[in-house]
Design a protein around this nucleic acid. Structure first.
Lengths: 251, 251
DNA sequence: GGGTGCATTTGATCCACATCAAAACACACT
DNA sequence: AGTGTGTTTTGATGTGGATCAAATGCACCC
């Protein structure tokens, strides 16, 4: 598949998603907040997410410091989350794609802790937090699943801590590519070829590396026959080889 | 206050805590799971935490891979959480002291994601998760507070990611010391002198540094008149100086 | 179609922290 | 007090990734 075809396939997929109205019909329901709910329960929560919101590329869904009142399910598009430090240093703390939940960091203090910025034109389902609380008290499947999503966010972050704390540059980048690949796969896209939505600098920020280091690692993987890279387009040639990069470390 | 007196004061404090039975009487209730509940609500959740458990220094409260069925509130003592990687590399992902909740990482997949190891003889309140779920549906204050605790864990971890991703060694260690100091303060201990419960290696693992680097930073802070260090004992001399170490970076 | 601005690549050099090594120290046990 | 074990300190050296610099490529826009 060419780069152009791939881009077309991805956007068609997203366009279809936008036509549908509610969780019941959403093709992301199996990986989103309603995952694991019965059809009855699903119907109950459907009016929970009645508000949709489009966010254009480069715009913020929310920003650190804003009052928190809703969490968001990504319906289409792609987001980065990033925190800015008092002294201006900032870091990307995560990337979110369809079916993933954004904003759970705001619950703790009622204030968003990070910015959520769309990396392409995106759409989200807005889920008012007080209504989610209420409904979680009635629909135990929803309560349980919501807790799972928060817990998995904790686990995801400790995975990133591991990455930042103990892995070397190439391992981080191999792990990153495999992670993106696996998430695209879970959403029905090709796990072997895709267009990155973020810049080298954003990848670097997420992985605790400089953009030059990211670029060099991509080039090295390319030369080693593990991947093909051409700007934002990536094709994974040798999945196992990539896995070995971060399994087979110095020892 | 001498090192000996300080140790005695801390353990007396803990001994008193152990005499009391329930959340209603617990001196940690303001920072633990029941924080913010009314007296009525507090009474309702009291039988939730009926099971106590002692964990001796070096023993595990739980280990990665074990089935998750309860979260734990630290009643006395000190824990580290650490994850071990397939290839044997591991990393400390957090330290927990009185009033803090352990085990929320297990909710997502029903399996604990990390080891929780006592760094001194400790005691925890065991909170069966299914009962917590039930009660959270009835006591909305509990539900809300539980969500807040999970969310704050997410925020805490993104703080660590920032630390690992963008800070230099001395900044990390200054931030670490100030964080410990502030948490001790919130629990009624002196924020300016305390005994670390963990080794240099464990601090290093948490901060993504080698133990020698931690030791060198401690020595440097000592020489710069910011702190006094003698093995595990730390006295903070110049809080503002310490804050400047990580506020005043290269620019 | 050519210009402007941002993203990416690649090379050369530097430095913060890791690594290696050894000594000093603390604590538990006998 | 003496011995063993694990922790901490300190020094000397090495290196992975940062930094600095410059060229190239791509997208957008007039």
């Amino acid at each position: 598949m060419s780069r152009g075809e791939l881009a077309r396939q991805q956007s068609t997929h997203l366009a279809l998603a936008e036509l549908k109205a509610a969780c019941v019909n959403c093709n992301l329901r199996e990986i989103c907040l309603p995952a694991g709910l019965s059809n009855e329960e699903l119907a109950q929560i459907d009016n929970l997410v009645n508000v949709r919101r489009k966010v254009k590329r480069g715009e913020a869904l929310y920003r650190a410091g804003e009052v928190f009142d809703a969490i968001y399910a990504v319906r289409s598009g792609f987001f980065k989350s990033c925190v800015t430090y008092e002294d201006g240093r900032d870091q990307v703390t995560g990337f979110s794609m369809g079916g993933e939940i954004l904003g759970m960091d705001g619950i703790g203090h009622g204030i968003h802790n990070c910015d959520a910025i769309a990396l392409e034109d995106s759409e989200v389902c807005s889920i008012p937090y007080v209504r989610l609380e209420e409904l979680a008290r009635e629909v135990s499947g929803l309560q349980r699943h919501f807790h799972k999503m928060m817990s998995r966010e904790i686990v995801r972050e400790s995975g990133v801590m591991m990455l930042l704390g103990v892995m070397r540059a190439e391992e981080r980048i191999a792990a990153f590519l495999l992670n993106i690949s696996q998430r695209l796969n879970a959403r029905g896209y090709s796990p072997l070829e895709f267009n990155l939505r973020m810049t080298r600098e954003e990848i670097g920020s997420y992985l605790g590396l400089k953009l030059e280091t990211v670029s060099r690692a991509f080039s090295k993987f390319h030369n080693d026959g593990l991947i093909e890279v051409e700007q934002k387009f990536v094709r994974i040639i040798d999945v196992d080889g990539l896995k070995q990069v971060y399994a087979h470390h110095v020892n």
